[in-house]
Design a protein around this nucleic acid. Sequence first.
DNA 1: GTGGTCTAGACCACA
DNA 2: GTGGTCTAGACCACG
Lengths: 127, 127, 127, 127
Amino acid sequence: MTESFASTRPIYLQLADRINRQIVRGDLKLGDKLPSVREMAIESNVNPNTVQRTYRELEAMGVAESRRGQGTFVREDVHMFTELKENLKREEIEEFVRVMHELGLQDQEIQTSLAAFLNRTKEENDD
Amino acid sequence: MTESFASTRPIYLQLADRINRQIVRGDLKLGDKLPSVREMAIESNVNPNTVQRTYRELEAMGVAESRRGQGTFVREDVHMFTELKENLKREEIEEFVRVMHELGLQDQEIQTSLAAFLNRTKEENDD
Amino acid sequence: MTESFASTRPIYLQLADRINRQIVRGDLKLGDKLPSVREMAIESNVNPNTVQRTYRELEAMGVAESRRGQGTFVREDVHMFTELKENLKREEIEEFVRVMHELGLQDQEIQTSLAAFLNRTKEENDD
Amino acid sequence: MTESFASTRPIYLQLADRINRQIVRGDLKLGDKLPSVREMAIESNVNPNTVQRTYRELEAMGVAESRRGQGTFVREDVHMFTELKENLKREEIEEFVRVMHELGLQDQEIQTSLAAFLNRTKEENDD
DNA sequence: GTGGTCTAGACCACA
DNA sequence: GTGGTCTAGACCACG
């Protein structure tokens, strides 16, 4: 039997991913306060317990810290930021390379195809 | 309001994607018979109509052809195969570039990071 | 055994044909909104899914475009219009020639008969 | 309300049409015996009464004649044959011209388009 | 058996 | 409201 559909990564991790990306993009700055558990639960249409678990996860990853009575904040740690960015980058690259290998491409071809694509879109924007 | 989760690509397209990848990988050869609509429906835990729609989609894309009373087959057309492979490649690259841009990387940095990653893993395999 | 009767062209295609003819005749102008799926289903005494399929077909043919939440529209593309008209013409001619051949006429005779008919009706109108 | 689908010409007339075409094509010769009502009913998947009505219609049109105790035969009348052929031809041409006019073509253009089509298919067969 | 069509009815996403 | 997707289940046509 083939696998089913309906992507299965737990919601609390999907939410953590999203917040991580917001940090790396700069939509969330170091030191910023995250929405309260309840706010975030409403915004994201999930259960507050799920958000709670996401925030715990972010703490465990060293990305956020909760301050009793004040809320949860992005840690003010440049090293964390750099590392987070590197991690996301690495994960994306790993996945990309894995899939391209699956499509039968060699390392060299992957780089060539990427370069060609970037040149193509660059030219389009030059028009 | 933030977007919700799992706003999934329609099942019939996910299934088409999966079949396309099987063809490009060589798990399905040109001329191979796909599972019957009913078989595939059971394998994939979806309704036969959904599979029907997938097969119709594959036919519209020129990837498969249905022979009434016999089944649905991968078209024996090398040109199709080449094009399909190119399309999947392009889509993966587009998505990769999109995400990397979202992480704040410039075109140049994307290429550098990829090259670095490939060198690193290459050295590991050389060990 | 002789063939049965009324082995009809699928309803969703008959409906597409009808709409195409309305466009070519000018009953539907480029950019016009088609009746909503539900309206058309009632007007035509068919299931909404059947209309949906018709509209999907028209979209695949490049004749219509669906705008989620707004409706389905005749594409505003003169090239499409010209091509559609040519296609309908060709199909009618093919069918006509096929039937006339079946009645035992040669290509030359078909043209002669048509010319005679047109002259006859022209004279009638001159009266 | 738009018209419904499911073509409505009565079966007994559809069957008469079919027989007429067989005569004009020469599949049925003058003087040939038509299948018995029962045979034809089985062949055509219709009720014997329907066939009976078809044969009556063919008699009324002067195309067939029933001989008590022997069956129904194509009338041995060359004039009838010529006229029948002319009628079918005329009907097809009328319909064709009607539709082409509906597509916006002038008499002259109809002839030109037909000639072009015949030349095109002729060349293909010359290949 | 196969794929193809159609219906009925549900729910979702967009706006 | 709109179109889009999915399910359930029926029936047909081809071979």
